[in-house]
Design a protein around this nucleic acid. Structure first.
Lengths: 204, 204
DNA sequence: GGCCAATTTGACTAAATGGTCAACTTCACT
DNA sequence: AGTGAAGTTGACCATTTAGTCAAATTGGCC
């Protein structure tokens, strides 16, 4: 029924890249259209506003990431390995991005969230939802690691929260510094938080 | 010589509040002028651009914070107490902000940094400089705590880095969630990272 | 009390931006 | 092959925005 088009996808891709490499505020509808090779009339055929495409881009992001996380956090992988895989993945992904764009771009959701949270409630809520999900992956790894006696974690949710905040903090610093260096030692920070080094040393 | 004015300060105050409560991108020169009660001609008499006022606002920020940090991190205060004071100060400050604006606003520098780092090098560099300074305060507390045998910290700079990233991550989450809750347990996260609970428990 | 540097003003321009729309095109389906 | 739903276009409008400037005002200081 009627003609088909991938203009909507092109618009979503364009907005993702523009917000990530710049910011939400610096991303105008004109530039989104230009980058997507789509006229403004078509933009408004698919979306109501910039916030609307941005919301779609978040959906897209999470759809793309979910299988990656699921495989990294597979229950058949030893819990601490899951975290190591996550850290490796983050480093490698950011390295690719840096090679592509000449820039370390960090976590697209965190940057966007902190920029728009006071103005765009819809985006804010969606981002929070995704963060909640991510924390659950971390929490499951912490819980399992504790159960296997690999770490001490009285409160896995709290520990996961600390790791998550640390992780996002480091990614944002890498973005601001435009430097992969903070991400190289990401996993050793995880271990520090989990007290893995300490436990071993004190036990010895 | 000539007339005097506090318009420059009013403009700096206005830009600080607008960026913090909104974002750099959502802050227009017109609104800055309106909020400061200053005409645009006067704005351009004192500043060259939005980035220019923003840079001045960073100077102002650091000038205001320096004595606060100096007192919190005074060498006569026991090292772990310095960190506790910092956490208390952050919580109380954000609580005041929330009462005033109805919003938790987090760390103004981190939000701004992650927003503009790909576009405004001057702001980016200034922000990084300030972060470097802040990390030094943390590092001195970690070093002293280690020296006094209160914690184990083989690499105080790395530990300070982890604490800093965690701290900024939590503040940003508090901003996004518009909720003080993540900041209530800030210090216990510090202790987790420093392995204070563990050490005591394992030693017992 | 007058000079002059510092500051203020408002009116102005050019460009960017968000948003609308009626007419046009395409193509899946019958 | 023709129809109608889905998608496209470019021209258009109203605002907002950054930035300029010559003329007016103020007040410290001699």
């Amino acid at each position: 029924m009627g003609r088909v088009s991938d203009a909507k996808e092109r618009l979503v891709d364009a907005v993702r890249e523009l917000i990530w490499t710049g910011s939400y505020g610096s991303t105008t509808i004109d530039r989104i259209c230009e980058k997507a090779g789509v006229k403004k009339g078509s933009f408004y055929y698919f979306f109501d506003s910039k916030a609307d495409v941005a919301a779609a881009s978040l959906e897209c992001e999470v759809e793309e990431q979910r299988p990656v996380w699921d495989s990294m956090f597979s229950p058949v992988v030893p819990p601490l390995d899951r975290l190591r895989r996550l850290c490796d993945h983050i480093y490698e992904h950011q390295a690719i991005i840096k090679a592509q764009h000449g820039r370390v771009l960090g976590c697209p959701l965190f940057a966007l969230g902190s920029e728009v949270c006071t103005q765009e409630n819809r985006l804010r809520d969606k981002i929070q939802e995704i963060f909640c999900l991510w924390r659950k992956y971390l929490e499951s790894a912490v819980t399992d690691a504790h159960a296997e006696g690999l770490i001490q974690a009285i409160n896995p949710a709290a520990t996961a929260q600390v790791i998550f905040a640390y992780n996002e903090g480091m990614m944002t610093q890498a973005r601001i510094q435009n430097d992969l260096e903070p991400l190289r030692s990401l996993y050793s920070g995880y271990l520090l938080i989990l007290g893995v080094g300490q436990t071993a040393r004190l036990a010895a």
